[in-house]
Design a protein around this nucleic acid. Structure first.
Lengths: 245, 245
DNA sequence: CGGAAAGGTGTAAATAGTACACAATTGTAG
DNA sequence: CTACAATTGTGTACTATTTACACCTTTCCG
C-alpha cells in the first residue's frame, strides 16, 4: 500500500494533467437497455467508468484501456461523442480528493460511448468504487458531477446514430431473432415500431443473414434466427445507411 | 516586447497544459467554399486558426474567443466535431518552439468547425503568422501537423450534417436567391443537384421566406430573393430535418 | 385438442423522390 | 430594335419508399 503522497505522485507522473475520459457503456439484456455504472461506499451518487490518459498514450487507446479495465473486453464499438469542458464540471466534493493535487485540478473530459454484448462483460470496480454494475435505463440512480449530462448526451448521440448507421452487431449476441432486434431498436428509441415494417426495412439494409434454425423453447411459434453479415455490416457502418442529398 | 523566458512563463501561467483548440472556419463567397487559414513567413505550410484554453474558461468560450480573435465575429455557428489526441500529432518542427516548454508539450486538440458569413469576417493573423486569409477548397495549400486531417474531418462532418440540419443561415447573407443557396449545397457536397427538386425540397422544410423583390443586375432573368425564417430555422436545427425511425 | 400468444408474411394507399421540358425574363451582340 | 444566349420559374408523370393494416401458422399449456 502506498502513502497518500506517493499516490499523489503516482497520478501526476503517469497521467496527463487536465484530461479525463468518461465512458458510457451500453448493453442490452432481457429486453432492457443498460448502462454500466460505479459506486463507492462513501457516496450515494453513481458515476460512469472513467480514467485518465497516459503521457504518451493515444486517447483512443486510453478509452479502450479504461473500458477493458471495467469490463474485461476489448475491440468493441467505441466512439468519441463529445467533450465536456466547463471549468466547474469536475469539482470533486468527496473529502478523499480534497487535498490531492491531481484530483483537485480542472478536468476536461472526453466522452466515449461503447456498445457491447452484455454477456461478454465482467463488471469490475475501479480503485475508488466498491460497486460496478449494470443499471437499467428506466431505473437510473443519482449521478455524480455532470455524469447525468454526459450520459444523456451519449444516449442522444446513439439515437441519432440509428438513423445512419447499423448498431445491432455490437449489442446483440451472435444469433438473435427479429423480434429481439426490434426490441433493441424500440428500447433505444423508446417507442413502438411496426413489426412488419421494421423487418422489411432492416432486411433491406442487407446486413442480416437469415439462418435455417429457429429458436425453440418459447411458449409460441419459433422465430427464425439471424446473424449479421459482417462484410455488409462494415460497409454500412462506413457508407452510412441511406438518406440525404 | 517580452523576453523569451517571460513569454514562456506567460503561456504556462494563463493556459491549461496539454489542451488546444483548432477551428475550421467555413465561408462561402462567389460560389466557392472557403476555409480560413494562417501562414507564418518561416514555414511553407499553412495551419488552422487555433489557440489554448484559459485556466478557468469553458471550452466553448475558448473556441468563441479564438474565432473572434481571427475573424472579428462572434455568436456564429460553432460546433465541436472531434478530438485529436495522438501523442505525436503536435510535435512542432519549427525551430522557434524547440525550447519553449509550453509549446513542446503534448497537445490534445479539440476540433471546432464554424460556419460564417464571408463578408462579416476580417481575417486577422495571430502572434505566429503573417498571413491570415481565406483559401478556396479546391486550391488548398500544404497543411502543418495534422491540420489536413482535422480539416478533412470537419468537412466530412459538415457533409453529414446537411442530412439532418439546415445550414444555410450561417453561411449565406441575409438575402439570397435560390440558385445561390443551391450552389452552396452543391459546393459542400461537390455534386450537381436538380434545380427543381432542390427548390421543392428546401421549400418543404419551411425555413425560407420568399421575398417580393428580385435580384436585378444579372445578365438574365431576375431571381427572387429569399431570407431564412429564423423561428422555423431554429426549430429545424433542434428537431432535425427528417428521416430515421 | 382448443385456446392464447407470438411469429411469418403481403398488399393497398399515401407519401416522397426522381426525371424531365417549356415558357418567361434579361442583357448583349448584331 | 431584335434575335439570341443564358438563366430562372414552374408542373407533371413515373418510381420508389413508407405507412397502415389482417390473416394464417406455430407452439405450449391446460
Amino acid at each position: 500500500m502506498l502513502t497518500k503522497e506517493q499516490l499523489d505522485d503516482h497520478w501526476e507522473k503517469i497521467y496527463l494533467n487536465h484530461i479525463s475520459i468518461d465512458c458510457v457503456v451500453f448493453g442490452f439484456h432481457e429486453g432492457q437497455l443498460k448502462v454500466l455504472m460505479l459506486k463507492s461506499n462513501n457516496e450515494e451518487a453513481w458515476y460512469l467508468p472513467g480514467g485518465f490518459v497516459l503521457k504518451e498514450e493515444p486517447i483512443e487507446e486510453a478509452a479502450n484501456r479504461i473500458l477493458k479495465e471495467r469490463t474485461g473486453i476489448d475491440e468493441v464499438f467505441l466512439r468519441q461523442f463529445h467533450v465536456f469542458g466547463d471549468p466547474d464540471r469536475s469539482k470533486f466534493h468527496n473529502e478523499i480528493y480534497k487535498d490531492n493535487s491531481f484530483f483537485n485540478q480542472r478536468f476536461i473530459s472526453i466522452g466515449y460511448y461503447a456498445l457491447v454484448d452484455f454477456v461478454d462483460v465482467t463488471p469490475m470496480p475501479d480503485a475508488f468504487s466498491e460497486l460496478c454494475t449494470w443499471r437499467d435505463l428506466d431505473d437510473l440512480p443519482a449521478f455524480q458531477l455532470d455524469h447525468e449530462h454526459i450520459f444523456r448526451t451519449a444516449l442522444d448521440t446513439l439515437r441519432l446514430q440509428l438513423n445512419y448507421q447499423p448498431i445491432g452487431y455490437s449489442l446483440m449476441p451472435q444469433q438473435f431473432t427479429m423480434p429481439e432486434l426490434q426490441k433493441l431498436y424500440e428500447t433505444i428509441l423508446d417507442k413502438k415500431l411496426d413489426r412488419r415494417n421494421f423487418q422489411r426495412r432492416i432486411l433491406g439494409f442487407g446486413i442480416l443473414n437469415k439462418l435455417e434454425e429457429t429458436r425453440k423453447g418459447g411458449a409460441h411459434k419459433a422465430p427464425y434466427l439471424y446473424s449479421f453479415n459482417l462484410e455488409n455490416y462494415r460497409a454500412a457502418l462506413k457508407e452510412g445507411l441511406q438518406g440525404g442529398w
